[in-house]
Amino acid sequence: MNSFGGQFDATQLSRWILTRAHPGWLGLAYRDHGPDWCELELPWRPDLIGDEAQPVLASGPIISLLDMAAGMAIWVANGEFKPVATLDLRVDYLRPSRAHSSVIGRVTCYRRTRSAAFVRGSAHDGDPSDPVAEMTGVFMTLDPARMVAA
């Protein structure tokens, strides 16, 4: 990816961001966004379950969903497409999602400083008032000029 920089248009860029790498592998889909939030969907898939006995999405993919929605919330809040790195992420698992259910994650970037962005969000499986998980996190914005090549 060489196209960090410039304006961040969630509707346009999500088509590309979400079809590659880890988000692409998970099949994350863009749903909606506002001035400081973004909502994504993690489709149910049998190879992402966390317990053989129950056809319910594992916790890991839900963290990825919330982490990605957080990154995109920061980009829409900044209006700018600058690389970010997760510093700290906490997820509370309130209840398992329903069998064969997709999970929707919405994250808001509620505070930005020069280098940090504070986010909070939740995940649900159909009813936003009955969440499956709550998250809070802190991300750092990176200076592309100082990013070390892998």
């Binding site: 790498a21 880890h22 998970l26 890991g60 990825s64 790195a85 892998a150």
Partner: peptide
Amino acid sequence: EGRPGAWHGGAIAG
């Protein structure tokens, strides 16, 4: 992968 050349935070959490 997350951003190019780096692990995605979600994969590390998994």
